[in-house]
Design a protein around this nucleic acid. Structure first.
Lengths: 191, 191
DNA sequence: CAAAAGAGTTGAACTTGTTCAACTCGGGTA
DNA sequence: TACCCGAGTTGAACAAGTTCAACTCTTTTG
């Protein structure tokens, strides 16, 4: 059952009664996306927050020159959201696209706000999730300042071997913040 | 009264009764730090979380070569913490140093955990604070990928004119992730 | 199956940023 | 006052990463 992955994810963060767990999960609705389909496009308002059950997504922005900058990839067991647009109902600066056929569990903004209001433990859950997220974003920024593109590349493939295999080099380059031509040269140099 | 700044900061995020606000604030104890004094040093465990009433701090890491990488500056009305070390009681990778004589309000880990447990609204407060923090770290990473050092420099001084005046160029360079020599050349080029 | 589009590679010229070393300048401290 | 230290500047040589263009090789799609 696909909800098991969500339940296990929540329990990694907090201890919860089975009843509470069931109740939280009941607000999430399953959805399928085909490869290349978008869950959110830049400029529109984010209406859904998701959790990936299977498949993989990339979350990226597009600048005027058409350069893609990838914020993160979300494979199985990852949360998927544009927090800013979802919470504040402002136009999103992000695109969320399936990079392979995928299954997600989605919650609407209204339901999420209702959960926050009715279950304090959900506040705690997301306080912890965001707290952990903040730490990893801080670390990523330091790596970006401190490490060369080559070091960042090897850090990435060692840290996320499972995701790497699903991605094109162009997508990885967009995550590392380098051109795909340069990534190609990095890979060649280390053969 | 110095607690007013903290109260106003909290109220920017959530609506709270005066009684709750007073109760939360009662856990925070004032402290003074002299210029160059450390609130936390790399390798030790973070025991206190702070809120800046006056002055300014820098939060940075030091690598083997002695390069300083600044995660952020915290002036009046900013929160100050190493979330990872504080929450998980692991040795910190960060240094927190006053860059001028400063006043802070500090809360211990025990008191913070007690607040989380006894007041669900505190969970909400920090859920919102971390949520906003996450958004700005994501944006900063995109700026780092997309913008040149020169663009990042002008973005910084335009966004934080008040803090800029307190900082040396070396400290700003550490925040931007460039050498201070290169920052000097950037400033010269735009005269 | 054929055509087209996208992914990856390579080279050459270029831009951005680093490193190291030498120098200047102003402010605190003995 | 004299000194020294840290901040900032500058130049030259170098390293890291980009851009553009040309080419190959898969993959997708009609």
């Amino acid at each position: 059952m696909s909800y098991d992955i969500l339940k296990q994810n929540i329990q990694k963060h907090i201890n919860l009664s089975t009843a509470d767990l069931e109740l939280i999960c009941s607000y999430f609705k399953p959805a399928s996306l085909k490869k290349k389909e978008f869950l959110l496009t830049q400029g529109s308002v984010c209406k859904l927050e998701g959790f990936v059950i299977d498949g993989c997504f990339r979350v990226f922005t597009l600048d005027k020159k058409g350069n893609e900058n990838t914020l993160y990839f979300a494979a199985k067991d990852w949360w998927l959201m544009d927090i800013d647009s979802f919470m504040n109902q402002v136009p999103s600066g992000l695109n969320i696209q399936a990079i392979e056929d995928s299954e997600v569990l989605l919650i609407s903004r209204r339901d999420k706000l209702a959960l926050y209001d009715s279950m304090p433990v959900v506040e705690k859950l997301f306080r912890i999730i965001f707290q952990k997220g903040l730490v990893s974003w801080q670390r990523r920024l330091v790596r970006n300042h401190r490490f060369t593109a080559k070091e960042r590349y090897f850090h990435f493939i060692e840290t996320y071997p499972g995701i790497t295999s699903k991605l094109t080099d162009k997508q990885i380059a967009g995550y590392l913040g380098i051109s795909h031509e340069f990534l190609s040269k990095i890979k060649k140099s280390e053969k």
